[in-house]
Design a binder for these strands. Structure first.
Lengths: 150, 150
DNA sequence: TTAATAGCGGTATTATAAATGCATCTTTTG
DNA sequence: CAAAAGATGCATTTATAATACCGCTATTAA
């Protein structure tokens, strides 16, 4: 049930970017410092998000990243399925479970997983960073405090 | 999202016991051999199940175990919550996430988890081992083949 | 045309937690 | 009291997530 930190961090990055003015670029360094995660780690996550089109990464001096599409078009389910390597709740195949054939539990667990995912699928990034929200306020403050130091 | 093998194995043990005649005892050894899991491992799982009342463990010679209550009274959600140590999809507290305060994602993920659990909660062990089911047939066969060898 | 900035990507290492194994105990019955 | 069977604590191994390292490529300004 527990999601990996990759997924967790991916959400943090996306939320942070969603709080930025559209088209303004945030650097890896900024995200790294704001969330206190290692540069390399943020790098991997951003690359994955970039490949999936959730963020645009701009190389070179004055480069950085921004959302690759509108926050309202970034479905949270898609982020989870992108970041999580193993989603299956159980592995009945290797090694093969002696009672796998005809086992009713598999279907129940997979349906439950689908319930989990489809609930998340009801939301987009824009639901996490609403106009007057506390989250937006906090992000702005973090961004400003970073800008002041640099 | 992935459940631990402890949970997986707990289900296998319960399913196996549910296929037994009521009050007839199965030994750890039998479960061990039938599912090809180590004795020590099965032990741990059975002990946890016993403490929760899902199985009755009978010590001493001619001991063994049986279901601690009717299969229809063993809710699958309770089994999962018993066996899984960490159910929380994310940990926003340690270390504290900079945007935890007012974060909408937490609620969404926890609600999704609740969706997962409540779907499982709609079923009991009796749904996994129905009277004419393939599962019951397989269990019986496995039990007989074990008995023949011992 | 080079220095500085910033993202890319493969590989290696470390940390954590799950999975497993070991040793020794108690309980029950013939 | 011996054999069978479960109880329990601790140690070890393994898997995988998390992190770090290193050299690369792209872009821009002096």
């Amino acid at each position: 049930m527990k999601l990996t930190k990759h997924t967790d961090y991916a959400f943090r990055v996306l939320i942070y970017l969603a709080g930025y003015e559209k088209d303004k670029l945030a650097t890896i360094k900024e995200v790294t410092e704001v969330f206190d995660i290692s540069r390399d780690h943020v790098m991997k996550i951003v690359q994955k998000l970039a490949k999936a089109g959730f963020v645009d990464a701009v190389r070179g001096k004055f480069g950085g990243m921004r959302l690759g599409r509108n926050a309202a078009d970034i479905n949270l389910r898609d982020v989870v399925t992108l970041m999580e390597v193993t989603l299956a709740p159980v592995n009945c195949e290797t090694p093969l479970c002696r009672i796998a054939q005809g086992c009713q539990l598999q279907a129940i667990l997979f349906d439950a997983q689908e319930m989990f995912l489809s609930h998340i699928g009801q939301y987009t990034l824009s639901d996490l960073v609403k106009p007057q929200s506390e989250t937006l306020y906090i992000i702005k403050a973090l961004g400003e405090s970073f800008a002041a130091k640099n």
